[in-house]
Design a binder for these strands. Structure first.
Lengths: 189, 189
DNA sequence: ACCTGAACACCGTTCAAGT
DNA sequence: ACCTGAACACCGTTCAAGT
């Protein structure tokens, strides 16, 4: 029991440090201190620092899935896909450091992570398929169309987070605008 | 003179280490050793480690601009934009660690970096504008359309690098396919 | 102006030992 | 089974000193 809550406290402490100062600020010593244990107690719950970060990412993936569900009541199939992507954008802009952690260059390593990501994105493919059936999105391989939507959304977030968006003159489009633009173009077809 | 070549050697050594083992493998001690100087000689050329990494990123941005120009002879305005994006994809997949460094969460910090990125992407806006004039891309704010294209390309690369693309079943679309899909949808309009 | 060697503080990880 | 304190190797950064 105590071990479970300690493990959870470690993940929470790591998430707090991540939010406050980025992944470099997540030090096992500070994580342990905030969780009320010694600086090497984490090794009894995680293989190493990367495993702890993977646990943080796994928890956040569940959070992201929830954020994509927010306010999607009483929407058409096509609107639901767009709303989910806007929820994705909102989550990422709200927790930029969690976003960069979850989609860092090591997602493949952890099996649990890949699994949870697969679940989250299979929901998107489902929604895209429904929108295609409803005639709100163009025909074609749903997985491929979902990948396109996903790529645009992801890229819009990255551009927004790195400041490559607001810097580009008076157009001052934000990530939401880019996602909306994509859906507008897709629906015209 | 010697200082210039030392500075250059430091950047080259850092780039090699980046390619080999990611940004974490870039240690000032190993950089100095590979450049034939002591482990703290870099501080005579760069304020700190981040400044060295920023110099690496700045050099790579020039490389990226070149990659986007590759093989763009005898193409229509619309094809030129797509070819530039495919060049961007090819560069990123060829040097994944440089890609994640250049578009890391700190691009805003360095003035030179922001400047060079601005130059690179203003070329894209120019090409997009030309394609619009030629009727190969839909009308609208060129900066905003360029941002959409840019976001999709960037997102497709990230998805490919993190393995979120090939894992999604039989569709097995790669980054090139997604970029091509976007241009296909845009041209239909 | 550029470089070096020693030193400091910090961190990930391991280990022997405790309950 | 879970935790601790000490220890080791490594790294970023600083400093006094050398040419």
């Amino acid at each position: 029991m105590s071990s479970v809550s300690t493990r959870d406290a470690l993940i929470t402490a790591a998430t707090d440090l991540l939010d406050a100062g980025g992944v470099d600020a997540v030090t096992l010593r500070e994580v342990g201190h905030r969780a009320g244990v010694s600086h090497n107690a984490p090794y009894k719950h995680f293989a190493d620092k990367q495993a702890l970060l993977a646990a943080v990412a796994a928890r956040e993936l569940a959070d992201l899935t929830e954020a994509m569900r927010f306010g999607t009541e009483q929407l058409s199939a096509g609107e639901l896909v767009e709303a989910a992507m806007l929820g994705y954008v909102a989550w990422a802009l709200r927790h930029p450091n969690r976003f960069t952690l979850v989609f860092g260059p090591w997602t493949t390593d952890c099996a649990e992570l890949g699994e949870r990501a697969g679940v989250a994105w299979s929901l998107i493919v489902q929604a895209v398929t429904a929108a295609q059936v409803a005639g709100e999105l163009p025909a074609g391989d749903p997985e491929r169309l979902a990948a396109l939507i996903r790529a645009t959304t992801h890229g819009a977030i990255v551009l927004a987070l790195t400041g490559h968006l607001s810097a580009s003159g008076k157009g001052h489009a934000n990530a939401d605008d880019l996602v909306h633009d994509l859906f507008t173009r897709l629906r015209v077809t």
